[in-house]
Structures are given as C-alpha cells and as structure tokens.
Design a protein around this nucleic acid. Structure first.
Lengths: 234, 234
DNA sequence: GCGTTTCATTGATCTGAATCAAAAAAGCCG
DNA sequence: CGGCTTTTTTGATTCAGATCAATGAAACGC
C-alpha cells in the first residue's frame, strides 16, 4: 500500500496542505507508476485522460510541427504536476528524460477531487501561476535572445535547478549533470544541435565552463555567464 | 456605485460563479478604473500591488531586456485577468493598447478574498491553465517557426480572436482590425518591423490577404494561410 | 577487444532575417 | 490645405545561425 506520509515530495507537491483523511481519499484514486527513460506518458492532441505528480525523475513537455521540428516547452522535476485538469485535450507530449516515478490519477476523478478540495486547488493554482511566469520568461529568450545569450541563460537556469549545493566547496564553481543530450538542449533553446555544440566549445575554450564528460557542466566563471545572459532590466 | 450585476463581462470573468452576496463583498474591495491607450498599469520587476479584471479594451504583457529588446508574451482581452496573485513580484509589464476599462483590486485584499472563495479560485485556475497552454503553444512559434509561418499563424489567431462574425457575409472572407501597429506585431512574433512589413506585402501581392488600411486585415484565402502556418500534427 | 551504432564536434558554405538606409504614405495640427 | 511628425514600406547589404558534410569520440553488444 502506498503511504503518502512517506512520500518524498510530501511537503512540496500539490497535496502538501491536505490532512491525513483527505490524503487517504486522494490516495484511493491514484496509484504509483514507474516510467522508463524515453517513454511518453501523455501525447499532444490526445484526450487528456490522466494527470500526475512527479515523485522522482525529470520529464520534458514538447510541442511539435508536422515535419518533426520540436520545441521543449517545459521541464518537469520532482514535486511538479503534469497533465491538464479541467480540459479535454492535451497540448503537449510528456516524455521521461530519466527513469521516473509518478503518482498518477485518472483525470476525471482528479477533477472531481480537486473541485471539492480548495486547499489542493490553491496549491495547484500557485504552481500553475509560477509555471506561467516561467513560460513567459522563456518566450523572451526564444523570441529575442541571441545564441550566446540563450546558452548563458540556459546554463544559469540549469545551475539554479540542479546544482548540488552540498558539495560546493568553492562557491564560485558549481557542477551539475544536465539530464539530456545536445539535441534536447537545442530543442529547449530553439537552436540547432551544431550551434549548441559550438557554444559549448566556445565557453570551454574561454575558460567559462568545463565539460568533464558530455553530460556534466562545471561553471568556472559565473560572472561572465551572467554578463552574457543579458539579464532582464528589473 | 458599481453594480457587478450590470457588468458586461459578468458571465465570463473569474467572478462569474459568485452569488449576489459574494459579489457584493468582492465589489467592496475593488474599484473601476479607466486606462488610456499607451498607459502601463503594472511594471516588470515592481512589487505586485494590484490585480484586475479587464472589462473593456485590449492590453499587452511584455518582458524586456536592458537594451530595449522586447517580447510581447500575452495579449489580454475583456474578461481576462491580469496581475500576479500570491506572489510578490511581477514579471511582466502590462500596457493598454486601446483605451481600457478595468476592475482593479489591491493584491493583498484580493489574495485574501480568493483564498476564502474556492469558486473564484477555481475559475482563476481554469483561466491560468488555458493561458499556460496558449503560452506554450506560442513558444513553438517563437522557437521553431520561420517568418512566413509566424505571420500566417498570427493572422489566423487574430482572426479567431477578433473577426466580427456578424458581418461575415462570405464565410471564407474575414475582416478584422488589429489593435496594434507593425512594431507590436514584430514584438509578438520575435521578428523585426521590416520583416513583418515585407510579409504583409508579400501576402497582399499573392492575393492571400487585403489591407484596406494599415490596421485592417481581410483574409481572402484562408486555405493558403493554414497551409503556410504549418499546423501542428495533432 | 573490436566492430557497430549513436552522439558530439568541427569545418565549409549558404541563406533567412537583421541591419542599414531611403522613400513613401498616413496622421496631425495650425 | 500644407508643412511636420510618425509610421510603414521598400531596397541594398550584412551576418548569425542553419545547413551540409565529415570526422571524432563514447557507449553497446558480442
């Protein structure tokens, strides 16, 4: 039996404000599910049949064009929520970038539960508003930034999200493993894989970053990155 | 005294599910405000001190870089909600594109009211989820579409939002007035004003659209536009 | 260990959209 | 109406990033 009380995202997910009894009711309509890296759980254009909390792993949200061009429109981490409640259609495909653990709910039951539990809806609203802010911020990057600016912004964002603060002996140097390959970085930034690769190489040659292996990035000169990212006015 | 019962967006705004007594309570914390075209009501980076319902007019949400580059990240129509509840900082500037009428609330009072009125929070959640879908859709356009594709997508979206269905004698021909100039179209699509102008001219020469005056667009050949927009797979 | 496949880097070239620069058209106001 | 400003269009040129084309380096299976 799944015990929400033992859940690792217990304090951060949308269920965090529910009491024991409510949690048990929610638990009844949901189930845990394992998703392997590369697997998709929700498909663009399909009926929205399920929603879920991410317990562990990283997933991507993508939209795409007929000819294969693809844009990653969101990256989902543990405690984030995926799926489209109160709507019939999904506009994005959700794919696991690492092996992942989800807490899945049939959409209809979730909708019903949510409507009768304001505390949960409030949490969901808060998360959605934050996501909207993030998406709109990303629109500035996609529409107006140059390749070097995109790259710097990306590395700083990744560092904020992923840096292992525990082993940061030198505060200036942060190291982290990006959970995706070059093509996916390109699909996040609206660039080609070649341009992404060239930007990585340039930053390495300039001593701004180090690339111990192809998934790991060490930021050596955060100052320069911040300057290159052309931070927003405010 | 403002009477919500007479409000033109009464059935579509986030307050539409409230009963008479609740409406009166909400009315007490809010006030109507007129905003002139060009005026900003919320500033990027400033403390989020107010939120509002749009009663009449069109406004834009923008994010910008230090050097003046700007991206329009949202267009706001009557019955839409603006501002960032439950958060201290605004990430976007909100500016009126036409004279507008708002129903303004101090953020703190609104937050409090919302938390104790689940029906309102539910409506707001629904609207926010829709906005998030729209924003992510737009990210595909910004990151992956070419200038002609952007232009076609833009015209189709505008036509859906603005076309005066009442006077559409010929179902294939739709006419509408874009509530903004070329520079703003450029800031929506992540292009320059020159490229936007060239695309307009090209479509006019090809007989796909007509431009009776600089703010009005008539779609003559919707088919071609749809083809050029490279519609999403699903 | 070694062939095979996949993924990343690097180089050469091309091109779509940006930039630079006028000209033309539309508003505006006395 | 006729000068003045602002906005839009059009043309010439440049350039950032895409595309095309190899090469190189890991990861994988046997």
């Amino acid at each position: 039996m799944n015990q929400c009380s033992a859940c690792v995202v217990r304090n951060r997910a949308i269920c965090s404000d529910l009491d024991a009894r409510e949690l048990q009711a929610l638990n009844k309509i949901g189930r845990q599910a394992k998703v392997e890296s590369g697997q998709s759980v929700i498909w663009e254009g399909e009926d929205s049949l399920l929603v879920a909390n991410v317990i562990d792993g990283v997933l991507k949200l993508t939209t795409s064009l007929d000819d294969g061009r693809q844009q990653i429109v969101g990256i989902v981490y543990p405690s984030d929520f995926i799926g489209r409640p109160f709507g019939q259609k999904s506009f994005q495909t959700v794919t696991a970038l690492t092996d992942a653990q989800l807490c899945v709910f049939p959409r209809a039951s979730f909708d019903e539960f949510a409507k009768s539990h304001p505390k949960l809806e409030h949490k969901l609203l808060d998360k959605t508003l934050t996501e909207l802010d993030r998406a709109r911020d990303w629109m500035l990057l996609l529409g107006r930034k140059t390749a070097p600016e995109k790259m710097a912004s990306f590395l700083l964002e990744m560092s904020d999200r992923l840096a292992d603060k525990s082993c940061a002996d030198n505060p200036a140097t942060t190291s982290f493993e990006i959970p995706f390959g070059r093509q996916q970085v390109a699909d996040i930034l609206g660039l080609t894989i070649e341009t992404v690769s060239r930007q990585f190489s340039r930053l390495r040659k300039q001593g701004v970053i180090d690339l111990p292996d192809r998934r790991t990035v060490s930021i050596l000169d955060r100052e320069t990155l911040v300057r290159e990212a052309e931070l927003q006015s405010a």
